[in-house]
Design a protein around this nucleic acid. Sequence first.
RNA 1: GGCGCCAUGGUGCAACGGUUAGCACAUCGCCCUUUCAAGGCGGUAAUACGGGUUCGAUUCCCGUUGGCGCUACCA
Length: 491
Amino acid sequence: MMETAAKAASVRVRFAPSPTGYLHVGGARTALFNWLFARSQRGTMVLRIEDTDAERNKPELVQGILDGLKWLGVDWDEGPFYQSQRTALYTEAAKKCLANGSAFLCYCVAERYAGGDHAAENGDGGKVRRVARCSCREGVPSNPGAKPAIRFKVPVGGTTKFFDAVFGEREFSNDEIEDFVLLRSGKGEEEFGQSMYQLGVVVDDIDMRITHVIRGADHISNTPKQVLLYRALGAKPPIFAHVPLILGSDKSRLSKRHGATDVNMYRHEGFLPEAFRNFLALLGWAPGGDDQFMRTSELLEKFSLEGVSRTNGIFDRPKLEWYNTQYMQKLPIEELLPYVEEELKRSNLWKAEWGSGAGHEWFSKTVDLLRPRIRLLPNFSDWARAFWSDEFPRDPAAIEKFWKDDRVPELLSKLADALEALPEWNHDACDHAARAIAEAAGVKAGMLINATRVAIVGQAVAPPLFDTMVTLGQERMVRRLRDAVRSLRGK
RNA sequence: GGCGCCAUGGUGCAACGGUUAGCACAUCGCCCUUUCAAGGCGGUAAUACGGGUUCGAUUCCCGUUGGCGCUACCA
């Protein structure tokens, strides 16, 4: 069975993305599970870039993948290693297979390979093997003179088994496994071309002494091929752990039409990385209890491969948003501040004085006041703009909603006078002043309060009014109220 | 087509032979209230279908259906 915590110190895992696209949420979760496992087992995390396909590989995408991982908080101890720089290793391994008889030279033209299941005869009741084998495997070149590729010679008959920490013991019939290519045929002068996926993965996993291969369930049918390769190369297969796939809302494979699938898009939208991590960790894994909100330390404490689900999961954006608002509210304020600072800098609203001392204190209190209503980081710049800058727009919808009454200018004007005369500037003083004016005018306090909110922050929705007043300060309050009156009367 | 994997409310998980089938998101209603959130309380909503095994199946076995994956000189 599997070696568990006893050998924990020697755990080595890897995340091996291909730079053929950005960091997909599915890949991100695979990376996260590897990371959680490695860190919780005090093991080692290796990062490997699988860029053996020069045609489809886009080197410029690597940085985006690394950035996405970094944002997610997934770090690694070794690498990144690039398979494109390790080709000698693969060629050597393929030749070793050739030498020990576990592989053969295949001269078939790629598009017309004589093997594969398309060549399988549909038996007339007879037991016909599903996967045909080409003649090259028996030493009879199908197309002598062509440059050969190296194919793995899958054994005839028998089965190949492996242990999967998520799916349990698995067993595949060898006759169902095609003779897969190890090394492409060479072009021009070269003897052989680049390594194929199966070879590169196995050679590297052996070389990097990977003990647990944690990857997407789409690789489960590839696993027996790899196990065969491990044996041919004289190595012991690792423990596998296939994690279920992430699907879109219609249960089809998650793709762009379901919304963003690039992790970096969530970063740019303004999600908090820890919220995203919490969400991703609990998609396909559960610690057993009822916990939903689990900070990284708790995730680390409870993570286990055995808890991973075998069912494909659906990416549920509303739940992700829920996580984000939870983190927005529950994160210790000092942990949230850097994100807000970064956001304000991005939108040119940041003032250096907020970085330390009294300014920092004010900044912290203001963020704390704002955060219960923030959904995404950019809301600090757009919706809450009036808290950082005197130049802010008044939302037409808010005006329509709360400035309809024609007594508003008069009321706001009186409030401005009253506030200006206030000797003390605090919540209760503002409160009393406002209510007194409303009462004297015979209007409900709420009416004045709502109209005032639009005047001072330009929004129909904002934190409690008197807290907002205190935060903004007396002088600015008065100025904004008078400005509002002016704009109302000017119309 | 072949092979494989999976199957509890709309979604994510729990119940690992005996529960009024539990929790969270979403949704609906109520409370709170100064707007909107948050929060509190409550409601609607699930074991895909058919056979077994068993005193008893969500749970074990078989089949069906459905979804997904693999079936490349892609990864």
